[in-house]
């Protein structure tokens, strides 16, 4: 079981319908590359977040496959087109099998 990712998601306070807005996401995760050695010289096994799916209003916006070259505590930015007030959902898959989900409200005016 992995610890909570404590996702911090930055969305605009409000968007206009049709406006393309940036979403910034920061999560807490060591993203162990499988290349690092501990004090005893043993390789620390790989454990990364290997996938992210982004949905808005229940429909997929983007999906990402992450490799060990993504730095610890991933900070990601991407865009989506605002349609109506609703939830932006993030779904991460950890190498250990854990699925992390979070929902974030996007307010759309007009």
């Amino acid at each position: 079981m992995s610890a909570d990712l404590a996702p911090r998601v930055r969305l605009p306070a409000s968007a206009r319908r049709g406006e393309v807005v940036e979403v910034r996401v920061l999560v807490q995760h060591p993203m162990e590359s499988g290349q690092r050695r501990d004090e005893a010289g043993r390789l620390v096994p790989r454990r990364i977040l290997n996938a992210l799916v982004v949905r808005y209003l229940g429909r997929e916006v983007m999906r990402m496959r992450l490799e060990p070259a993504i730095a610890a505590n991933p900070l990601l930015g991407f865009f989506l087109r605002a349609e109506e007030t609703g939830m932006v959902e993030l779904e991460w898959t950890d190498d250990d099998g854990t699925i992390h989900r979070s929902s974030h409200r996007l307010n759309v005016a007009g």
Partner: peptide, 23 residues
Amino acid sequence: APGVASFAFTPRAGRCEVSMRLR
């Protein structure tokens, strides 16, 4: 290993731009 990331987009993204931090 050469891989860094792969993305699949739908038109709902509105703009094709992504940011990340690499090793």
